[in-house]
Computed example of a mutant assay.
Amino acid sequence: MKKQLFIGGLLAAALAGLPGVSLAGDIASIQPIGFSADGKVFAFQEFGIKEGSNVPYSNTYFIDTDKGQYLEGTPFRTELTDKDANLSKARRQNLTAARGQMDKYDLLTNPGLIAAFNPPTELGSPAKTLRYTTLATDGPPKSPYTLSLGELPIAAPTDCAAVAKRVLGFSLQMIEKEGVPNRQAARQVQTVPTERACSVEYRIGGAVVYQPEAGNQVHIALVLAFDAQRNGRWIAVPVHP
């Protein structure tokens, strides 16, 4: 069975900036790794400490940006429960396991551009829209893009039966493309990956962009998914404008 791409885990953030959110949950951090030269593969590492158990974890994801799927044999997941476990050890072990795939696609050579970052700690920023440009230059924005996030109810999986709130999926539209109004349906998610199946709220939290030497740009939209315990995990959605 093919795994759908929508990737988890990213972007270090605290919950203090999100209205109505308690500090009970945790949000994973992210370290983008990079793209293959042709933009067809994107990878990142997510990591953190699980709330309550204090267990350090680290996962490395490799995504086929055309098909919207994890590469076969990935992601690589590490979770440490031994007495001397710490986040540094979890991250090192996880990257060691993933190193073969990183080298295979030469991902460190093509880091891409973090074009926008909109975590919950960003006070006053919109939770459902994100506007950015793909050129890292000073001055007025050139050829901007805008992504718009919507939420929609989905059938709750059996594992989510204990969730008091309604389980949601999301839709993603590119409503501005190179400065021109647009209504491109970038992605509509009626079923979410297993690790995000019980999500009750979403926030659009960032965008990563890569321009291959030959071919079209690849955009990775970063969507933050909250579960009922207010743990925040991330989904990365490939967008091809």
Score class of each variant (00 low, 15 high):
Lys3Ala: 06
Lys3Glu: 14
Lys3Met: 10
Gln4Asp: 15
Ala14Asp: 14
Leu18Glu: 01
Pro19Ala: 10
Ser22Tyr: 01
Leu23Asp: 08
Asp26Met: 10
Ser29Gly: 14
Ala43Pro: 09
Phe44Gln: 11
Gln45Ser: 11
Glu46Trp: 09
Asn54Pro: 04
Asn54Asp: 09
Val55Lys: 11
Tyr57Leu: 09
Tyr70Val: 03
Gly73Val: 02
Gly73His: 06
Pro75His: 08
Phe76Asn: 02
Arg77His: 10
Glu79Gly: 08
Asp84Ser: 11
Ser88Asp: 15
Leu95Trp: 06
Asp103Tyr: 02
Asp106Asn: 14
Thr109Ile: 04
Thr109Met: 06
Asn110His: 14
Ala116Arg: 01
Pro120Trp: 00
Leu123Asp: 03
Leu123Lys: 15
Gly124Asp: 00
Ser125Trp: 12
Leu130Asn: 05
Tyr132Ala: 01
Thr133Pro: 01
Thr137Gly: 09
Tyr145Thr: 06
Leu147Asn: 09
Gly150Leu: 01
Leu152Met: 12
Thr158Lys: 15
Arg166Lys: 15
Val167Pro: 01
Leu168Glu: 02
Leu168Gln: 08
Gly169Asn: 03
Glu178Asp: 15
Val180His: 07
Arg187Glu: 06
Thr191Trp: 05
Val192Ala: 13
Pro193Thr: 10
Ala197Ser: 12
Cys198Glu: 04
Cys198Val: 07
Val200Ala: 06
Tyr202Gly: 03
Gly205Trp: 00
Gly205Phe: 07
Val208Cys: 00
Val209Ser: 13
Val209Cys: 05
Gln211Asp: 09
Glu213Val: 12
Gly215Asn: 05
Leu224Ser: 13
Arg230Asp: 10
Asn231Val: 04
Arg233Thr: 12
Arg233Leu: 07
Val239Tyr: 06
His240Arg: 15
